[in-house]
Design a protein around this nucleic acid. Structure first.
Lengths: 249, 249
DNA sequence: CGTTGACTTGAGCAAGTTCAACCGGCGTGG
DNA sequence: CCACGCCGGTTGAACTTGCTCAAGTCAACG
């Protein structure tokens, strides 16, 4: 919690510089993936005025907590997040992982309070979109509203597929599907589709896929023995993408 | 498929009458639950002009199919629907059930094609909102856009809870949670929270909850033996709501 | 009255969990 | 500097939940 201080300053400075120099969405590396896509430059300028870029978090710090009143929608800027929902008895489900350019907190719009908890998996930063102000300027920017809806819709589709995974797939199919999903998302972000880091713990993966940690461990071992992938701690190297696809069920 | 004809005419007539008489959203029994809530009367009038109310389906008829291009968003008017997503090997997951006043097809917005298949569980009708026109008039109606987002957000939250159910709950907890979820939704619609019909088959319930049909059957039997609920074919009577809640996990 | 489809019931089985031990890296404090 | 405890991960063996398969009931229907 309080150890955030040893990493925060660096990020704070970057954010500050960007803000002072009006380094805005247009100059952001994530521009093509992000919200402003398709906006006219004057609309974009207006959007820029309400975006707060100063928000940085350290590992395990929460971006928002379950039932906290909706303040902002967030876009991951760097790092990674997980969201969880908890059952009354304390068990909890990791409902999603979020990478740069992805939106977090959209499930709060309806009830005006976050319906999940979001935690940083590593040192991470976000762009903060104050919802109140977003609504205000959105009223005059149908493309912006449409972008938001499109994002919501995209997450909805992803969730349906996750339901398919959780309800109908075997442990091995789950694991293969998960790895490929990560691969695709990294590729979309301009990174390698075959080599990347698993920023989340085995426990988080297991929880997310509805498995036990031990099962994940064994499965990863088995995939590695089969020569499909190579693991080295948190880094993954996919050796046989095609074989992996055929395991997805 | 073709047997739709023996029930369709009745509904067609009703729809026609309503359209001719300009019986619009305001006079709809679902008004308080539905999209137009919070719109000004002139906006509502405009919305009314694009809504098509003539769409009626018989049992098992599909409202839209996986990967069909997005044409419209639908609001259930009467009856009930299920949506499914299929894995490449043919297995499929029932991702949701939809009752009057609920939206179907919103997962198509992002990709502009439906990402699931929607089928009527019984003779049903929908209000059809042509998406193109909805976008057009929505551009000038921020409240309408916000309503849509709110709906998307609500479904998102529901899906996260379903992920919790699928990933972390025992068979009994799943069943109890499911029954209570139905109960609440019927109550919201002004029906009894304790007595209602299960419009879906045991197979659909089982699939939706990630269980085998047999397990559902046993579970329902067990709940009935315990005096928590009473079943008579498709109708349910919840005897001990509180006990059921305590089983939800 | 035989057929069909939806549901129930019983018995054995398997996938994945649980429990327990173990390993290695890392930060802390003696 | 090393011992210690802790955390994340891996491995092995026993166990349990819910599945599979098979048979049987029941109601609707031609």
């Amino acid at each position: 919690m309080t150890q955030a201080n040893n990493v925060a300053p660096l990020f704070m400075d970057i954010a500050k510089v960007e803000h002072e120099h009006h380094l805005a969405c247009q100059s952001c590396a994530l521009y093509r993936l992000c919200l402003p896509l398709g906006l006219h430059s004057d609309d974009l300028a207006q959007l820029d005025t309400i975006i707060q870029r100063s928000h940085s978090l350290s590992r395990n710090q929460s971006l928002f907590d379950y039932l906290a009143p909706l303040k902002s929608i967030y876009v991951v800027r760097s790092g990674a997040f997980k969201t969880t929902v908890a059952a009354s008895n304390g068990r909890e489900q990791v409902t999603g992982f979020y990478f740069p350019g992805e939106f977090v907190g959209m499930d709060a719009i309806h009830s005006q309070s976050y319906q999940s908890t979001a935690k940083a998996l590593e040192t991470s930063s976000v762009c903060e979109l104050p919802f109140e102000r977003l609504s205000e300027i959105g009223a005059a920017m149908p493309q912006l509203q449409m972008q938001m809806m499109s994002r919501l819709s995209k997450e909805l589709s992803a969730d349906k597929n996750l339901m398919l995974l959780l309800g109908k797939k075997t442990a091995e199919e789950k694991m293969a599907t998960f790895l490929l999903s990560l691969s695709r998302r990294f590729q979309d972000r301009g990174f390698s589709a075959t080599e990347f880091q698993l920023s989340m713990s085995r426990a988080d993966i297991a929880n997310h896929l509805g498995l036990a940690v031990e099962t994940v461990s064994r499965l990863l071992g088995r995939l590695q023995d089969g020569g499909l992938v190579h693991f080295e701690g948190k880094s993954v190297n996919i050796k046989d993408m095609h074989a992996l696809q055929s395991l997805c069920g």
